[in-house]
C-alpha cells in the first residue's frame, strides 16, 4: 500500500499542472476569441499572404 504515498502526490501534481496550464491560457487571453482560434489553425502562416486570398477558397 505504500505505493499510494507516491502515486497520489503524483496524481495531484499532474492535476495541478493542468490547473496551472488553464490559468496560463486564461492569462494569455486564449479564451478571448473562441471562434477565431478554430480558423486560425487552418492558416498557412509560413506561406506569403495575398490580400483577400481566403475569399475564394471559402465556398
Amino acid at each position: 500500500m505504500n505505493i499510494i504515498v507516491i502515486l497520489f502526490p503524483l496524481a495531484l501534481g499532474l492535476g495541478l499542472l493542468g490547473l496551472g496550464a488553464f490559468f496560463w491560457c486564461m492569462r494569455s487571453g486564449q479564451y478571448a476569441d473562441l471562434d477565431g482560434a478554430a480558423w486560425r489553425v487552418l492558416q498557412d502562416d509560413d506561406a506569403p499572404v495575398r490580400p483577400r486570398s481566403g475569399e475564394g477558397e471559402r465556398a
Binding site: A32, D33, L34, D35, G36, W39, R40, L42, Q43, V49, R50, P51, R52, S53, G54, E55, E57, R58
Partner: peptide
C-alpha cells in the same frame, strides 16, 4: 470568416509602421 481575418492581419502586417494586428472573430 477566416479569409477576412487573414486578409486583415496579413494586410496590416505588411505596413512597416504597424507592429501588430489581431482580429477577434467572435467580437
Amino acid at each position: 470568416c477566416a479569409g477576412c481575418m487573414q486578409a486583415i492581419e496579413g494586410g496590416l502586417a505588411r505596413e512597416p509602421a504597424i507592429l501588430g494586428a489581431r482580429v477577434n472573430l467572435a467580437l
